[in-house]
């Protein structure tokens, strides 16, 4: 018996491996900017510093700087098989990436600290700003990971 979906070949009409870098970039963009819009939402809903302490925004800024640092060096430079040495060489790339990942993890952990130490434990009525800070940092963190490791750099090999 022949079904009317027999001729549909989903895996053949679109070559996903060619599109992998594009999809990873778009996914990372969605994650990153959704994170920032979450904190914008919290900031316009709670403009008072009693509800959402303005210094909590530093967490997301550090996460963004870490995002840029992580994605500024390519995997090839860390492994040492790129054509050019770059300005600091392989060791410099490793140190740079180490500091970047440390800032990324640090901002994620700090946002959890803000959520629990600033809102949950205090018994504040409105926990939403803390949750927004946490989700902002989580989205930026995972956006950075997707942009860094979702893309491959040697598709032509």
């Amino acid at each position: 018996m022949s079904g009317f979906l027999d001729s549909v070949r989903c895996s053949e009409c679109i070559d996903w491996s060619e599109k992998r870098n594009t999809i990873a970039s778009v996914a990372a963009g969605v994650l990153f900017f959704t994170g920032w819009w979450i904190i914008i939402d919290a900031a316009v809903k709670y403009p008072q510093t009693e509800n959402l302490n303005h210094s909590y925004h530093a967490c997301g800024v550090i996460a963004t700087v870490a995002f840029l640092m992580i994605n500024a060096v390519s995997n090839g430079q860390v492994r040492g098989d790129s054509y050019s040495e770059g300005c600091l060489g392989q060791t410099g790339a490793r140190v740079w990436l180490f500091i970047g990942f440390m800032m990324a993890f640090g901002s994620l952990i700090a946002s959890m600290w803000i959520l629990f130490g600033g809102y949950v434990v205090n018994g504040t009525a409105d926990v939403y700003p803390g949750i927004a800070v946490f989700f902002q940092n989580a989205f930026i963190f995972f956006g950075g990971l997707v942009f860094k490791f979702g893309r491959t750099e040697d598709l032509w090999q």
């Binding site: 060619e18 870098n21 594009t22 990873a24 970039s25 778009v26 990372a28 963009g29 969605v30 990153f32 900017f33 959704t34 819009w37 914008i40 939402d41 316009v44 390519s74 942009f147 893309r151 491959t152 750099e153 040697d154 598709l155 032509w156």
Partner: peptide
């Protein structure tokens, strides 16, 4: 097919699209 500059452009374009959806929601 690996083009870091183009992928950065896709990233920013996605950000603009997400912003266009986030703005009326806010």
């Amino acid at each position: 097919s690996s083009n870091a500059c183009l992928e950065l452009a896709y990233f920013f374009t996605t950000g603009i699209v997400v912003s266009a959806f986030g703005f009326p929601l806010i």
